[in-house]
Each structure stands twice: as C-alpha cells, then as structure tokens.
Design a protein around this nucleic acid. Structure first.
Length: 623
DNA sequence: CATTGTGTGC
C-alpha cells in the first residue's frame, strides 16, 4: 500500500470516530443511494459528481480534504477518479490547499486526465517561488503521451512560461499549439501576447496581438502593460487611446499600466489627465492602482499629491508603503521618509526589500551613514533578504559618505556575486572621492564582467581625462573599439504643457535649443554655487499651484522659470526623467547635464539635443 | 470540470 493511502485510511479511521464534522456527515450522505425521478436530467452519476464537487469546494482546510480522500480510498466508486481530480484541483489551486499533497495525489493517480494535468501545471505556477516545474510537467505530459493537451493546458503553461520568462520553452509551446490547432482559443492568444510581453519580446507580442481576431480587454491590457514595462511609453499610451477608439472600456488593471507609463515618462499633465479619467469613468482605485498613482505623482515631482493618494488609502500593503517611502526619499524628504517607515512598522506591515531601498536611499541622500547601518541590521531582524539593489544602496551610502575603503570591502565580501551596477556605483564613488587608484582597480573588474557597455569606458575615460592622462584616454577608446562597442546616445525627456519632449545626445534640431542650453548651463551653475555635487540626476521644475502652472505658457519661459525655482525651493524641487525612467532628488541636480558632458568630452565638442516628434503625446488634443 | 491582463527598486 502506498504511504499516502495508508496514511489517509488511518486518518479516516481515527477521525471517523472522534469527530462529527460537517464533512464526515456529508460523506455518509454520499454513500447513501440517491432517489431520483426516472425522467430527470442530469443523470444520477452527474448528480452525485456535482455533490462531490461542491463538497470538495467547500472544504475549510486540508484536514477535511484528507477525510474525503480517505473516504474514496475506502469506498471506491465509479466516481472515484472524478473525485480524485477534484481533490487535486483543490489541493493544487485553493488558497487552503497544499501543492505538495496535490503532487502526491497526482503521482498516485494511475492515468490522470487532462483536467488533472492542467490543475497541476497551473498549481505549480501559483507557488511563491515559481520554477520551471510546470513547464517540465507539460513536457512530460506531451512526451509520454499521457494525455492530450487542450487549450487550457496551453494557456496555463504559457502563464508558467511568462512568470519565469522562459522564452525558448514558450516559443516551442507556441509552435506546438499552432500545429495542433490550439492557438485559436482567445485565452491562448491572450496568453501568448502576455507571454511575449513578459519576455520583453514586444514585437512578437504585437504580432500575435495584431493577429488576434477578437481582442478583449485582457489582450489590450496585456499589450499596454508590455509596452509600459519596457519603457515604450508613447506606444503604451497610443495603444490606450486606440483601445478607446475601438470602444473597449479600460478597467482598473488597464489603468495601472497606463499610470505606470505616465510615471516612466515623467508626464505629470498626462498623469493628472489619466487620474481624472479614472474618476470620471468611476474606475475603482484599488490597492495596485493607488500604488501606481503614488509612484506616478512621486516620479513626476508632485509629492504632495502622492501623499494625498497614500493618505486616502484604506488598506496599504508593503508595496504601497514602499512606493511612498521611496517617493519621499527621491525627493530628498529624508525625515518624512524615515518617519513613514516607523509608521509602517507601527501598523504591523512587514517591510520588504524595496522598503529598505527607500530607507537607505533617504539615508544616502542626507549622509546618515550610521542610521543606514542601523537600518541594515533592522532589515536582517525582519528576515528580509537583501536584494542586489539593496546592496547597491548600501554601496552608494558608503561612497557618498566618503567611506570608500569600507564600500570596497563591502562589495568584495558580499554573499552574492556583485553585478555590474554595483561595480559601477563603486566606480562613480571613486570618481567623486577623487580616488583614481581605486577607480582603476574597480574599473578593471567592471570591464571584465561587462565589456560591452559603452558607459563603463566613457566613465573611466573621463576619469583619465580629468587627470590629463591622455594616453590612457586614447587607450580606453581603442579598447572600446576593439570590443566593437558603440556609444548609444543617452536620452532624457520632459513633459511641458502636455507635450513630451525627448532629447538625445548628439542632435540639436530642437527649435529652442539655444534657450534650453542656456537654461541648462544656468542650472548647472546654480547647483555648483549651492554646493551640490553634479553627480546624480537632474531636477527641473517645481510643481506649484495650478494657477502658476497655467500662467507658464511658453515652453522656454516655463523651463526657465522652473529652473529658476530651484534656488528658492531647492529641497522640494523635482522633475525630468533620466533615460525615460527615473527622476531624482534636488540634492543632485545635474545628472543629465553632467552625463551629457561626460559623453560629450570624448564624443563631441558640444552638447546637442534632439527634439523628438513634438506633439505625439499631447494630452490636450491627443484624446 | 477551468483559463487570460495590474503596483514599489541602486
């Protein structure tokens, strides 16, 4: 007798006599014959199976499920295999279930049907640490011809592929589904769109999307989220507009991606418009959407508005708290960030690693090394496993406090292998602390693990240039050429009066390029005078009262005023997005500018800008 | 027998 069966029979025996649970009495009922009128429909067997299904569905816990399992082992019936597959479904899929139990049930099933295979595949991708297990299950199912996959199987296994970004496996599944005619199901098609989007194969996602005859809300949302995720903001927002043109009403899930696209674009006006749209359409602002809104307002510089959304939330999870804390931290509102962190702990929400990114970011921005170290131990007390990003924050914190040696030994003794970003953080730290020896050491390591990133060569080359070591500068250039590395021009964007402007280094076709460059020079000067080290991100503009905003009509004028505000309200000023993605605190005003300078020193003589399809993204007449 | 799309990050 297999161990599980044995265990269950024992379980039934002991509990049958000691408990009077609802489950057991219903089970006894199941054993009694059902009387039914002869002309009735459904059949008695169907009726019985319906009762079994609803009984299993109502299981309050695994104990009850075991009792049912035991019952069917002890009293085999023609419906046993039906019951078994329902037991597997419960154990694998219910939140009261137990995937391990499902596995054992499944392994003991002589010939599981498609339904059971599907449940196992889906159940395995629902576990907290998803692996390729569901994909292996699918392979096993196909290879040994255990059961014929149906469209459900394909949809579930595609989902499994998208959570682990298993591109090649998913492509094979796509091919097989095509050969077997399983790709006509709308669920499979949407699954494919989502799968390719999650694997960042956006062109493939789009081609499946375009060939989908009936594009439902989910397909549109998956596609929009795909664009938004990889930063193709204009495409995401364009698709959102197209979706409305064909008459599909977005819901709160769609809006999360749309808001997130606004956040990445730094498009405050557009974000505000979308927020108003959400209210107008009475779309529920749930936990996820609120979090996205907080992030959007924070990244676009409207920190008070972010705080308002946060304060109005009824329930907040770790992600909501984290996005608010990170928002405050990038605004340089260090005290608020740390105060909010204490409040988070008071309200018994367990912080996650992103929370600590925010906390350490706040410390780094204000030079609170000791506090940062304290929070590092707090993190360990909470059992939060530091991610690579958290290590990065810690390195940044140490570097900014001038503790280069400590930062270096921190990196070399990390329990996980430091990635290129960690090394680059350290390299920037060496540069800012004028430690050329250490910089060389770090740079060699960096070039070793990431020889194809132009940024690394540029960084080191500029370091040499700043100390007039021209032979080494040209050596770096040669080395870069030797690796076939080309410099990809950096870019940034800003939204002004509802227009999204994108600037690419090496192009100066913007009609107001002269004025803009003057403003950028002024801001750099301001920052220098104010004692800010020009080493992180750029900040442009205060988000003042509505009226003030309305008054600022001209782009260049508005830009200039915005920059001018910097000296008045320094700690609260924010704006502009680095590489379409991120903005930073006022502490560090000129990254885009200095970044442009960095490249410009070896690439070109002047900073140049490119005006990117003006008007493609106006929220005023765009909709 | 049943499915698919969402948020925080150096």
């Amino acid at each position: 007798m297999p161990p599980l069966t044995h265990y269950c029979l024992q379980y039934l025996h002991t509990h049958n006599t000691t408990t009077q649970s609802h489950t057991l009495s219903t089970l006894r009922n199941l054993a009694t014959p059902i009387t039914y009128p002869t002309h009735s429909f459904p059949s008695p067997r169907q009726l019985l199976e319906h009762r079994i299904a609803s009984l299993i569905q109502q299981c309050p816990n695994m104990r009850a499920l075991r009792q049912i399992h035991a019952h069917f082992l002890k009293f085999p019936s023609p419906s046993s295999s039906f019951a078994l597959s329902k037991l597997i479904a419960f154990a694998a899929l219910s939140d009261r279930g137990d995937i391990g139990y499902a596995r054992r049930l499944f392994d003991e099933m002589p010939r599981p049907n498609v339904f059971s295979w599907n449940c196992m595949i889906r159940g395995c991708s629902l576990v907290p640490n998803p692996s390729k297990e569901p994909i292996l299950l699918y392979k096993k199912m196909v290879a040994r011809g255990f059961a014929n996959p149906n469209s459900f199987t394909v949809a579930f296994v595609l989902k499994a592929c998208s959570v682990v970004s298993a591109l090649s496996e998913g492509r094979q599944i796509h091919c097989r589904a095509f050969r077997h005619g399983l790709d006509s199901s709308p669920f499979v098609q949407t699954g494919l769109v989502n799968f390719y989007a999650k694997c960042e194969e956006i062109a493939l996602a789009r081609s499946v999307f375009d060939e989908t005859p009936e594009r439902n809300l989910v397909a549109w949302s998956a596609m929009i989220s795909g664009y938004s995720r990889i930063g193709l903001v204009i495409e995401a927002l364009g698709l959102f507009r197209e979706m409305q043109e064909v008459g599909i009403d977005p819901d709160e899930v769609t809006m999360v991606s749309v808001i997130s696209a606004c956040a990445r674009a730094g498009a405050l006006d557009l974000g505000r418009w979308v927020h108003a749209f959400i209210d107008r359409k009475r779309i529920t602002v749930d936990l996820e959407l609120s979090t996205a809104l907080i992030d959007m307002y924070a990244k676009c510089g409207a920190i008070e508005k972010a705080r308002k959304v946060f304060d109005e939330m009824e329930v907040r999870d770790a992600q909501a708290w984290s996005s608010m804390i990170v928002g405050l931290a990038i605004h340089g509102l260090v005290e608020d960030a740390l105060e909010l962190f204490s409040k988070m702990l008071e309200s018994k929400v367990k912080p996650n690693h992103v929370t600590f990114i925010g906390v350490l970011l706040a410390c780094a921005h204000s030079g609170l090394v000791d506090d940062g170290r304290r929070f590092w131990s707090t993190m360990q007390e909470f059992g939060v496993e530091p991610s690579m990003e958290v290590y990065g924050c810690m390195v940044d914190l140490l570097c900014r406090s001038g503790l280069l040696d400590e930062a270096y030994s921190f990196v070399t003794t990390m329990p996980i292998l430091p990635n290129s970003i960690i090394w680059r953080t350290l390299l920037v730290g060496c540069r800012n602390n004028n430690n050329l020896d250490k910089a060389e050491l770090v740079a060699n390591k960096l070039l070793e693990i990431e020889p194809l990133n132009a940024e690394n060569y540029v960084l080191l080359s500029n370091l040499y240039a700043s100390s007039s070591q021209w032979e080494k500068v040209s050596f770096m250039r040669k080395k870069m050429k030797g690796h076939g590395v080309k410099i990809v021009p950096g870019s940034s964007s800003i939204e002004i009066n509802g227009f999204l402007h994108k600037f690419v280094v090496g192009d100066d076709s913007h009609p107001e390029i002269r004025e803009i460059r003057k403003v950028l020079r002024d801001i750099a000067e301001l920052a220098r005078k104010a004692g800010h080290k020009p080493w992180t991100s750029a900040v442009l503009h205060d988000v003042g009262e509505e009226e003030k905003e309305e008054a600022l009509v001209e782009h260049s004028e508005r830009l200039a005023i915005a920059f001018g505000l910097l000296k008045i309200k320094a700690p609260n000023v924010i704006r502009v997005v680095k590489n379409l993605r991120f903005c930073a605190d006022c502490h560090e005003v000129t990254k885009i500018i200095s970044k442009a300078y960095e490249r410009e020193i070896i690439v070109r003589d002047r900073i140049r800008f490119h005006h990117f399809v003006k008007g493609t993204c106006s929220c005023k007449d765009f909709w």
